[in-house]
């Protein structure tokens, strides 16, 4: 038994071997390229951090309560932007998702086009959309609403279409056999199956949008982001501490509430 020889491992095909080597080399090359190319001035970073540490960090932990009113108002605006934006997106995403779902519109061509539209929308970061809308409607909160609405439509449309594709088509077939027409099938066979998940994702998207809309102010699209930019350019770290506190509280509360509501729905 001591001298027992293991049978040889089954030979991998040449193609698989070459592919494995190719992938390994590619990954190595990627990291070499990254670490050679990146330019970090460690000396300066360390020097700066030593001289800045006491000017920044302790102040973040002693928030400026005098700014609480302004910060609260800006945070409220952020919530409004997120709410209006995600609701608009939830409505806009519905028709697009039906377009992109393979089991609804029949043709594969239509659903591919729908999917392309959605992923094209998603490729724009929220902030880029905000830049475009600020130029269009001026530097105000409504630019933020539009940016959130369009940005979320891309993501929600994708999620919604996946939900539609996963529904139980037997029900739909049964109704077809009953002699129901397309609209009837939609209302009696499809919508009841997708409503809870749609709502759940829309509410989840609101969570994400709260985070997203809190930074839009940096390009002038309203909300608490405007204050972040002012506080950082004035090096007012006490105020930044207050802003951070407000964001943490609001985001936590909304996450918590949304998780509870979603659990109730599904």
């Amino acid at each position: 038994m001591e001298n027992l020889q293991l049978p040889p491992k089954p030979e991998k095909s040449l193609f698989k071997k070459i592919r494995a080597i190719f992938i390994t080399l590619l990954v190595i090359a990627m990291y070499v390229w990254t670490f050679v190319g990146i330019d970090i001035d460690w000396g300066r970073a360390i020097e700066r951090s030593i001289s800045n540490f006491h000017r920044v960090v302790p102040k973040l932990f002693s928030p400026d309560w005098a700014a609480a009113g302004d910060v609260g108002l800006a945070m409220l605006e952020t919530v409004f932007i997120a709410f209006a934006g995600s609701l608009m997106a939830a409505v806009l995403a519905v028709p697009l998702s039906f377009l992109a779902a393979q089991n609804m519109m029949g043709g594969k061509v239509v659903s591919t086009i729908g999917k392309w539209i959605l992923s094209a929308i998603r490729a724009f970061p929220d902030l880029i959309l905000a830049i475009l809308f600020v130029v269009a409607v001026g530097p105000n909160a409504f630019a933020g609403v539009l940016a959130i609405a369009i940005g979320s439509t891309g993501m929600l449309g994708k999620m919604f279409s996946e939900i539609i594709e996963s529904i139980d088509m037997d029900v739909v077939q049964a109704m077809e056999a009953n002699g129901a027409n397309k609209i009837q099938i939609l209302f009696y066979g499809v919508i009841p199956q997708i409503t809870p998940e749609f709502l759940s994702y829309a509410i989840y998207r609101f969570e994400v949008d709260i985070r997203a809309s809190s930074i839009l102010g940096i390009v002038g699209a309203g909300g608490i982001g405007t204050m972040i930019v002012f506080a950082s350019s004035n090096r007012n770290w006490n105020e930044m501490g207050m802003i951070l506190l407000a964001i943490i509280i609001v985001v936590t509360v909304i996450d918590f509430a949304s998780a509870r509501i979603r659990r109730k729905i599904v």
Binding site: M1, E2, L4, L6, P7, K9, P10
Partner: peptide, 21 residues
């Protein structure tokens, strides 16, 4: 090597050594 041959031997005893990999 002993551990490996022990493992292989065990698989042989339950007649499934051909599924090794």
């Amino acid at each position: 090597k002993e551990d490996k041959s022990l493992a292989y031997e065990s698989l042989n005893r339950v007649n499934i050594a051909e599924k090794l990999y």
